[in-house]
Amino acid sequence: MARRTLLAALFVTAAAGLAPAAAKEIGDPQRGAELFAEECSACHRIGPGAEHAVGPRLNGVFGRRAGSLAGFDYSRAMLRMGNEGLAWTLPTLDAYVANPRALVSGTHMSYAGLADAAARSDLLSFIRAYSDRPQDIPEAEPTARKTQPVLTEAVMALRGDSEFGEYLSAECTTCHQRDGSDLGIPSIAGWPAEDFVVAMHAYRQKLRPHPVMQMMASRLNEEEIAALAAYFAMLE
């Protein structure tokens, strides 16, 4: 496709409104509330003023270390898992609700497990609402599932498009200065495109250790990395 035609097509897309990237909610919290009442409420309390019952209260469970609440008599198995580093996140809670004994052998929770993955998502969506809000505690567990950005075919065709790269670069230049200054944060201006691509893929695979860069790279697809590489390679 000639560049002129491509750009014309893009203007049409832009005018029509490009589908935005949309994270997926964990699940349906209303259905989750019903499931909580059916499956959990015999033993667990959640919400304002919730106390321990047969099981521990579930306020603030997301992000908490397993077996760490004062005033609840946990199984030795749960205490051991907590000491080994088990923390409650969306994946670990999902696994625990699916089959408690598979994750924590010897848990006192006498629950057979919830096999339906969609039902578990709804349930956890309801429970998530009673844990820390990221706007108050930014490091709190995520509230939605990450998706790869939705890009139309026309945008996907822009491999190595430096204009797209310039837009994406706005996320980089909050820290990496366009003029190549490198006080405390390395310069990426004028980096050869090939090095750039290799480095970003290494962050995506968590081979390079920096957590900010791992997070940034993990949300970029190959076209986006190529576009960024093309843009930064152009900078003097």
Partner: peptide, 18 residues
Amino acid sequence: LGASYEPSGDRIASVDSF
């Protein structure tokens, strides 16, 4: 610390954090 965010329904949702 850091987190990344995306539009989700009627709000901006956190999707990753460290």
